[in-house]
């Protein structure tokens, strides 16, 4: 079908308006000069200036980025290992429990995950701070990574790995030289997913964070509980901007890469 009926056009328009209007309104009001968030008093970048002077927010942003980089990197390593175990290791003792522990965190309510981790940290006497948030984030995001990576591992041709092993590679070399390059796109998207999950998380971080470390979502949450504030609007706009640029450029890069690959294949076909 090439032409959309009026009904479909309406649902697309309304659907996407519903998804995007709230964010558009938020962005527009972040440039409002007035302290009163609902009264428009002219264009101004005042709140961005105040935001940049707000030490507490900058500190929290720094903690958040540190936690996200650390936890997503560890989660990618552990999650890739877990995916490899699930798809390639065959049967072993406790396999059902293992796959259960991979899938359960995906559907677990955050309040329960957060509560249980906090009780563990207190039980073993670990001081709450950056380390405990990293441990908590790594645990749930490694499960997301392993789901992303294992779907890629399942779909690729195993004979390539077997050929490498036949030709004298050790198991680890076969993984490093053959498997890893093939699953690399999934590993990278797993890392990105883990990174955004960590940036975004409020509930688990609130349980795992101590007084010594506050992440940006915790800071935002305690500020917006009291109501809408123009500074938070400015901060939100910056975050939305970064995400939009990131996602769009990532998709453009991957599109470009597939195009180039196709061109190379065509060139190779012509040469042959």
């Amino acid at each position: 079908m090439t032409r959309l009926s009026w009904f479909n056009v309406t649902s697309l328009t309304l659907g996407f308006a519903f998804l995007y209007l709230p964010m558009v309104i938020l962005i527009i009001y972040s440039f409002n000069a007035s302290q009163l968030v609902t009264v428009w008093a002219g264009f101004s970048t005042r709140w961005y200036g105040e935001l940049l002077q707000n030490e507490a927010f900058l500190d929290a942003a720094w903690v958040t980025i540190k936690v996200a980089v650390l936890s997503s990197t560890i989660a990618t390593v552990l999650g890739t290992m877990a995916a490899y175990v699930l798809v390639r290791a065959g049967r072993f003792l406790g396999r059902t429990l293992f796959s259960g522990m991979i899938y359960a965190p995906l559907v677990m309510p955050e309040v329960i995950t957060g509560l249980s981790l906090l009780l563990l940290f207190i039980g073993i006497g670990l001081d709450r701070g950056v380390l405990t948030i990293v441990l908590a984030h790594t645990t749930f995001s490694m499960c997301y990574v392993s789901v992303v990576v294992s779907s890629r591992l399942m779909s690729f041709d195993r004979s390539l790995e077997e050929a490498a092993l036949d030709l004298g590679c050790s198991g680890f070399d076969a993984f490093r030289l053959v498997t890893l390059p093939i699953i690399a796109p999934a590993v990278i998207s797993g890392w990105l997913l883990a990174f955004t999950l960590s940036l975004d998380d409020l509930v688990i971080a609130s349980f795992a964070a101590g007084p010594s470390a506050t992440t940006l979502p915790i800071k935002i949450f305690s500020a917006v509980r009291l109501g809408v504030s123009p500074e938070i609007n400015a901060l939100s706009t910056i975050m939305i901007g970064i995400v939009t640029v990131g996602v769009i450029s990532a998709s453009l890069i991957s599109k470009h890469r597939t195009l180039r690959q196709r061109q190379e294949e065509q060139a190779a076909a012509r040469a042959a």
């Binding site: 709230p22 964010m23 975004d200 979502p217 935002i220 917006v224 939100s236 975050m239 939305i240 939009t244």
Partner: peptide, 8 residues
């Protein structure tokens, strides 16, 4: 995009 911001 941050879940918290979308609710906010």
């Amino acid at each position: 995009t941050s879940f918290l911001i979308r609710v906010y």
